[in-house]
């Protein structure tokens, strides 16, 4: 038996919004410690990893590990039926072929239950190695979203170069070129830790997709190391995260 209750549907809506552009379907792996999900996009260029520890939930019960294969489009449709300030309870029996979502209005005067058919997804799990990133940058999530949007105007390819001087985003195309550089701020809005400078090239379209998670977090963490995927991490309060990994572009 699995049961998890969140005080606000809004955060769940935001989590699904952060996933659904990159994934159509996904399996939530529920255990007694919380919920995990990991999936590659269709073209296997990026990987998204979601972790919600049980402390994130108002109520959490999971007697036995259970995998819930969900169609994210269908889940979005169900979430549209709920108000952001409704409480939501997700329930599934052991070996169930459906999941139940119950919404309760803030004043408890309205309840609504929905059933969603579960999918049997054959999802491949990848081992994500522990990586020491040479450059770790924290910046406001809205700033990162703005940079990705502005870069997209110029080119499909974005170079991210990080050194002690700052982090620089560059894009150049037929129209011209764009360079945006952020330095560390004294107020701590932007922090930049650099062991070795790193410069890598990425597909801007994926970076833009990752910024769908912007409403979830004030700050985004970016990790860069030579010849490994970029890490873009959005914390979910103190109880979890969405991490996106993006394979760099490499010389032909």
């Amino acid at each position: 038996m699995f049961e998890a209750r969140l005080a606000s549907t809004l955060t769940l809506k935001r989590i699904v919004d952060a996933l659904r552009e990159i994934l159509n379907q996904s399996t939530l792996d529920c255990s007694d410690t919380g919920i995990q999900m990991q999936a590659m996009d269709n073209s296997h260029v990026s990987l998204v990893s979601l972790c919600l520890r049980k402390e994130y939930f108002e109520k959490y019960k999971c007697n036995r590990n259970i995998s819930l294969g969900l169609d994210l489009k269908s889940l979005t449709k169900v979430l549209k039926c709920a108000n952001g300030d409704d409480a939501v309870t997700i329930k599934a029996a052991d070996k169930a072929d459906k999941v139940e979502l119950s919404f309760e209005s803030a004043g408890k005067e309205r309840t609504a239950d929905y059933e969603l058919r579960l999918l049997n997804l054959d999802q491949e799990h990848l081992a994500i190695p522990e990586t020491e990133y040479n450059c770790v940058v924290h910046m406001p999530a809205t700033e990162f979203a703005r940079i990705c949007r502005d870069m997209a105007t110029f080119s499909e390819s974005v170079v991210i170069a990080c050194s002690k001087e700052g982090i620089k985003f560059s894009a150049s195309g037929e129209m011209g070129a764009a360079n945006i550089k952020l330095s560390e701020t004294t107020k701590g809005e932007v922090s930049i830790q650099v062991d070795e400078p790193v410069a890598l090239s990425f597909a801007g379209r994926y970076l833009s997709t990752f910024t769908r998670a912007t409403p979830l977090a004030e700050k985004v963490k970016i990790g860069l190391a030579p010849d490994v995927p970029l890490l873009v991490e959005y914390p979910i309060e103190d109880y979890g995260y969405i991490r996106y990994y993006l394979a760099p572009k490499v010389d032909d």
């Binding site: 260029v45 799990h125 990848l126 081992a127 090239s201 597909a203 032909d252």
Partner: peptide, 14 residues
Amino acid sequence: KKIQGSIRNYFSAK
């Protein structure tokens, strides 16, 4: 010219 790498080249199957 740069080409897009695959995430599978970096993360192996469990």
